[in-house]
């Protein structure tokens, strides 16, 4: 059989990759445009960045996005980890019930989760703003964190905790020194998913926030009603931040592995 050098499938893959990256490159390039135009590049300038950094609305939105994303990541990771460990000792019906309920926000369209939360907060007379935004983010992030830790827990030896207890650890020491370290890769990737989900969320935030509290996505949405090149500067900032977070999260395990390898080497030496 003759083997073609560039079969159609590879051409399509290359086209798809170009299709994915073209708009991202376009945004970054036009964030440095000196004119208002989104279609003609008339020269290099930093005016849209100046405009972004001097606008208090924009800076507040960026600040809010970070605060909510970091708090939501910490809270959902802690809640998720504790719950997964607890659930593994619970009865099967309770476990599958929690699993099914967790699937709801994952399987439902975001807009359905969003209006449910909106009506819930309004019925409880919790005024829309930072609190509702944070609660909603923790609510939709935690199921993803649990989804990322559960498979890791399944591979654990169920006797691990008992072994720690036999060796004289109290339950908290067993948890902290025996179980949690084993779950760490799952916890780290769960935290990463939570951070990016929260950082990027638009639909749910848009429905549950109010009183002038807005994140970057909501800001971009409201600004996009007219042609506005400062969006490109904000977008570029988002692209840089997310790329940095991804690199950081991928570096931490690498650095840790290297440190561990070095320690092992010293021990054997």
């Amino acid at each position: 059989m003759k083997k073609k050098k560039f079969p159609l499938t590879r051409v399509i893959l290359a086209a798809v990759i170009a299709f994915f990256y073209l708009p991202i490159v376009y945004t970054v390039v036009f964030s440095f445009n000196s004119s208002r135009s989104l279609t003609h590049f008339s020269g290099f300038s930093l005016r849209w960045y100046e405009k972004m950094f001097s606008s208090s609305t924009t800076m507040n939105a960026i600040w809010m996005t970070f605060v909510v994303a970091i708090l939501a990541t910490i809270l959902s990771t802690i809640i998720g980890t504790i719950t997964v460990i607890g659930l593994s000792k619970c009865s099967r019906p309770l476990r599958s019930a929690v699993g099914m309920i967790n699937d709801l926000p994952i399987m439902n369209p975001d807009i359905v989760t969003a209006i449910g939360l909106l009506m819930f907060f309004a019925t409880m007379e919790i005024s829309k703003g930072f609190v509702t935004l944070l609660l909603a983010h923790v609510a939709f992030c935690t199921p993803y964190v649990m989804l990322s830790i559960t498979p890791r827990l399944r591979t654990l030896d169920p006797n691990l905790a008992d072994a720690a207890l036999d060796l004289g650890a109290n339950p908290w020491q067993a948890l902290w020194h025996a179980i949690i370290p084993q779950l760490m890769p799952g916890i780290v990737s769960g935290a990463l998913i939570a951070f990016t989900m929260s950082f990027d969320d638009f639909v749910i935030s848009y429905f549950v926030t109010g009183n002038g509290v807005q994140n970057i996505s909501i800001l971009v949405y409201t600004m996009s009603k007219r042609i506005n090149p400062s969006i490109n500067a904000i977008s570029t900032l988002v692209i840089v931040i997310i790329t940095a977070v991804l690199i950081l999260f991928n570096l931490i395990p690498m650095i840790r592995d290297r440190a561990m390898a070095r320690r092992k080497k010293e021990e054997t030496a």
Binding site: G86, V98, G116, F120, A139, A161, P171
Partner: peptide, 26 residues
């Protein structure tokens, strides 16, 4: 390790409030 079991209960309450009730409201 039965003592860990209770660690799951707060979340059961949490999802009942923030996932189940909103769905029922719809």
């Amino acid at each position: 390790m039965k003592q860990f079991r209770s660690m799951a209960y707060p979340y059961v309450a949490w999802i009942s409030v923030l996932i189940v009730i909103p769905m029922l409201l719809i």
